[in-house]
Amino acid sequence: MPKRIFYGLSVLLLSAVQPALAQQFESPGSRLLATGGASTIEGSGGGGIVPWATLSSYADEGEWGATVQMTEVQVDDFSLSVQGASFNWNNRVEVSYARQQFDLETIGGELEQSVWGVKARLSGDLVYGAMPQVSAGI
């Protein structure tokens, strides 16, 4: 089985099972559904051109959580494949990793890199509270 098909099927299976697992292990005060669902191609929680201050997974205070992600982009001249994972502890600290592969099919060649990250929530909350969530990361 080709690697990309294997990764695609794995992510599809995990995404089908993950909401049920999140509800199974979720405590009454845990984060809202979908607040930990967006990931960047660098592997960290958030999204968009500038990553959001959110942390990955549904872990709240006193909990830990993990998120896996896969991104595939294919156009005529190139393709980008990203597999990543992130771990969140106490809705305070996130450690992330992503493996990026950029294929330049028209000129031949491939660029690959690994991206590690650490993010800490400094203050605020994504949904509740008077101030927005503020995080810092490297």
Rank of each mutant, 00 (worst) to 15 (best):
residue 106 T to Q: 13
residue 110 E to N: 00
residue 82 V to C: 07
residue 137 G to K: 03
residue 64 W to A: 14
residue 10 S to C: 11
residue 107 I to S: 10
residue 38 A to E: 00
residue 19 P to A: 10
residue 134 V to F: 04
residue 92 R to Y: 04
residue 11 V to R: 11
residue 25 F to N: 13
residue 5 I to H: 08
residue 1 M to L: 12
residue 120 A to H: 09
residue 132 P to D: 03
residue 67 T to Y: 00
residue 73 V to N: 07
residue 38 A to K: 12
residue 27 S to V: 13
residue 27 S to F: 10
residue 124 G to S: 06
residue 110 E to M: 02
residue 117 G to F: 07
residue 6 F to L: 14
residue 93 V to H: 15
residue 135 S to D: 05
residue 49 I to F: 12
residue 63 E to D: 13
residue 85 A to G: 13
residue 47 G to Q: 05
residue 106 T to P: 03
residue 128 Y to S: 03
residue 73 V to I: 14
residue 21 L to C: 08
residue 16 A to T: 15
residue 49 I to G: 09
residue 47 G to T: 02
residue 35 T to L: 04
residue 120 A to N: 08
residue 54 T to H: 03
residue 132 P to N: 05
residue 76 D to W: 10
residue 14 L to F: 13
residue 123 S to D: 00
residue 2 P to I: 01
residue 112 E to F: 07
residue 22 A to P: 00
residue 62 G to N: 11
residue 126 L to F: 06
residue 64 W to L: 11
residue 123 S to Q: 07
residue 69 Q to S: 09
residue 112 E to K: 01
residue 101 Q to K: 08
residue 15 S to A: 13
residue 76 D to V: 08
residue 15 S to I: 02
residue 12 L to A: 15
residue 14 L to K: 00
residue 85 A to Y: 02
residue 46 G to D: 01
residue 16 A to S: 14
residue 29 G to K: 13
residue 133 Q to K: 06
residue 22 A to H: 11
residue 17 V to Y: 11
residue 93 V to C: 07
residue 87 F to W: 14
residue 50 V to E: 05
residue 79 S to E: 03
residue 4 R to A: 10
residue 58 Y to D: 09
residue 43 G to C: 04
residue 103 D to E: 13
residue 105 E to I: 04
residue 42 E to R: 12
residue 41 I to G: 06
residue 135 S to H: 00
residue 81 S to K: 09
residue 53 A to R: 01
residue 125 D to T: 01
residue 50 V to F: 11
residue 10 S to N: 10
residue 70 M to C: 04
residue 29 G to C: 09
residue 65 G to M: 03
residue 59 A to V: 05
residue 110 E to D: 06
residue 43 G to V: 02
residue 83 Q to C: 05
residue 132 P to A: 11
residue 25 F to R: 08
residue 28 P to F: 12
residue 37 G to Q: 06
residue 95 V to I: 15
residue 137 G to Y: 07
residue 27 S to I: 10
residue 62 G to A: 09
residue 116 W to S: 05
residue 68 V to T: 08
residue 93 V to L: 15
residue 62 G to I: 05
residue 88 N to K: 06
residue 20 A to N: 11
residue 121 R to V: 02
residue 71 T to R: 05
residue 60 D to G: 15
residue 71 T to K: 04
residue 83 Q to L: 13
residue 20 A to I: 14
residue 97 Y to M: 04
residue 69 Q to Y: 01
residue 19 P to V: 08
residue 112 E to W: 06
residue 134 V to L: 14
residue 14 L to G: 01
residue 17 V to T: 14
residue 55 L to C: 10
residue 111 L to R: 06
residue 9 L to R: 10
residue 70 M to R: 15
residue 79 S to D: 04
residue 75 V to H: 10
residue 30 S to K: 08
